[in-house]
Design a protein around this nucleic acid. Sequence first.
DNA 1: CTTTTATGTCAGCCTTGTTGACATTCCAAG
DNA 2: CTTGGAATGTCAACAAGGCTGACATAAAAG
Lengths: 167, 167
Amino acid sequence: MADRIGAGGPSLLFLTDEQLRQGIEAMYFAYRGFTADPDRILEEHGYGRAHHRAIHFIHRSPGTTVNNLLSILGVTKQSLNRVLRTLIDEGLVEARVGTRDKRERNLFLTEAGEKLERALSEVQRERMRAAYREAGPEAVRGFRMVLEAMMDPQMRRHFNRLKDGEE
Amino acid sequence: MADRIGAGGPSLLFLTDEQLRQGIEAMYFAYRGFTADPDRILEEHGYGRAHHRAIHFIHRSPGTTVNNLLSILGVTKQSLNRVLRTLIDEGLVEARVGTRDKRERNLFLTEAGEKLERALSEVQRERMRAAYREAGPEAVRGFRMVLEAMMDPQMRRHFNRLKDGEE
DNA sequence: CTTTTATGTCAGCCTTGTTGACATTCCAAG
DNA sequence: CTTGGAATGTCAACAAGGCTGACATAAAAG
């Protein structure tokens, strides 16, 4: 015990390599749970996580452009285009030619798109709600703080912009 | 303000759909950061996340079997085998025939394997350390609590078994 | 001896990422 | 008005890493 204190003090025990490694594994296993429920629904429809991400952020920012979506998702336009094409062809997403700049496409969910979005976010929120309830409000604040500190600066900007957009 | 209290009380504000959605987005963006640093190193070596996961858990439990790894990673043996084959062929992993049960293969990292593991976990721990330091010990406890509550029961069992194995 | 288990391997498919090349549309600067 | 460049779409090809199904082998278990 004395040597542990000598190694940095009890207040820094949460920074030991062992603690950090447990945090890494917790992050890995938790993310598996985080995606498990939506994955099941997506599979029924023949979609994947890429479709989920597009649907989520279009729902979140109706009328967003392809470029903005590319910046949030961090993939190539070809990848995103393939996903968007499917969603548009199957009537979940509508792409309206931009009013100000006609080169841009403003993306919206159709009624069918909104319906799938609700189904996906419902199960994901339910898992989050159960975890939040079990851990309590104080833990949730800590959870949010650590996650935000873990983001790349550019992702943090996107995160905060989305957050502040609907306060 | 009064209607918010009426909607469930101030202590439950962390369970509003808006709060839950922010938690979902935080999880998504943070996971991107979480994997970004190892991904860069892996790319230099021509490996992917699947190799990282195998290396991590073999390092974590030297002598583990293929079956145990399958159960932790939740992929098919064909998928895992492809990754292990590469790692064995390139001299990062050694597969010794089991002593007790000769059908089993006990997996170990070679010196080269341990070296890559150190490089990968170093950058990942560094990001985790920075986030932990910024958020503080209380936040880290909350972070861990929420993540653990978010896991599927089977993953939580794996997580706790790994955790207790090296206390 | 037969069955089950642990593992490996081959073939083929899917999603989702990548790069490169090229067409179209259209704003904006000259 | 013309032209350059930006935003977008599209086609082709490729790779990683999931998946399923089928089959082989060795060894443990009954």
